[in-house]
């Protein structure tokens, strides 16, 4: 069925890693449908455009976009002019612009609407940017850097704020749940900080109030993601596990652990928050059932570590 329906009626699962390739999978069978070339660079981050036409890959000194509809193994658009590694990227929900963060100590906004209406914006910080996250209000960008500072950049007013949850610990990833009630940030010590969010609508500024500090992992944390229904948080780490937490009280509900025992670099929830995809250093991506902790599917084909994944799903209309 996949691929046959209209473009917005499909499941897209993409992985990329150290073998300089991007693989597009049939999520429910585990079959690799296509492999695209990501020449000369590892894949640091992946995301799919809101219209599901393109997949964007962040690499060394560029962002490349690949057409999901064709079998072209080469990118169709190449964004360059960035000095170092691009570490994170994402899209405004209508696909008007793209945001990226990179080791050149800056976060950028790329105008995607047309070439003439270029509205490129840059936000400079003092340390390499490790992660970027867009607030659900689509107008505030949260930037986490190597020195441990979290920057809140208001895109409309250009106003910015900073907070430092822990000294001498780099921020590895930041996530905000779709309902905009919580923000999570993980660091290289394996800790996860949770803030409760308020405001952020209209002219009201977004307010952050510290909610909790979780000792999520014993080693380097790599990624945190909230589930689409905002009920769960997943954190991944160099300690070879991914852990799932309830957002009501932030208790651990599931440990996703495989005997392969390698770093878990990235994770994504399915639209119904029932499944989690993970990307791991053993070159295998896995689909886990959150309730049971069982591996439902394995995606094998990468020759080296998988460091990034992107997933798009559809919520079904109940019949």
């Amino acid at each position: 069925m996949t691929g046959d329906g209209p473009p917005n009626e499909q499941v897209i699962f993409v992985t990329g890693g150290y073998d300089h390739t991007i693989k597009i999978w049939q999520a429910h069978t585990g079959i690799c449908q296509r492999t695209a070339q990501h020449t000369d660079s590892q894949v640091n981050a992946l995301d799919i455009t809101p219209d599901k036409q393109l997949v964007a890959a962040a690499g060394y000194q560029h962002i490349r976009m690949y057409d999901l509809g064709s079998s072209n193994p080469n990118p169709v658009i190449n964004y360059d002019g960035v000095a170092k590694n691009v570490t994170g990227l994402g899209f405004q929900e209508d696909g008007k612009w793209m945001y990226t963060g990179g080791e050149d100590c800056s976060a950028r906004i790329w105008d995607l609407r047309s070439r003439d209406l270029q509205c490129q914006r840059i936000f400079q910080v003092s340390a390499p940017v490790n992660c970027v996250c867009l607030h659900p209000n689509q107008a505030e960008l949260i930037v986490g850097d190597q020195s441990g500072v979290i920057h809140l950049w208001d895109l409309r007013s250009d106003h910015n704020e900073q907070l430092i949850p822990e000294a001498e610990a780099s921020i590895q990833d930041i996530a905000i749940d779709p309902e905009g009630t919580h923000m999570a940030a993980v660091n290289n010590k394996g800790s996860c900080y949770i803030w409760a969010l308020s405001g952020g609508v209209g002219k009201e500024p977004t307010k952050l109030s510290p909610r909790k500090k979780l000792e999520t992992h014993k080693r380097y944390a790599l990624r945190c993601q909230f589930s689409p229904d905002s009920s769960l948080l997943v954190t991944t780490s160099a300690d070879q596990t991914a852990r799932v937490w309830e957002t009501t009280d932030f208790t651990e509900t599931q440990i996703l652990k495989h005997e392969a025992k390698r770093w878990v670099w990235d994770a994504a929830f399915s639209a119904d928050s029932q499944y989690i995809f993970t990307a791991s250093s053993d070159g295998v991506a896995r689909l886990w059932n959150v309730a049971t902790g069982v591996v439902e599917r394995e995606y094998q084909g990468h020759q080296k570590a998988i460091t990034a994944l992107a997933f798009r799903d559809e919520v079904r209309v109940s019949s």
Binding site: S273, Y275, V315
Partner: peptide, 11 residues
């Protein structure tokens, strides 16, 4: 939309 049911789950 039924939030408890995704296209992936269906597949």
């Amino acid at each position: 939309a039924d939030k408890r049911h995704s296209l992936l789950a269906e597949q």
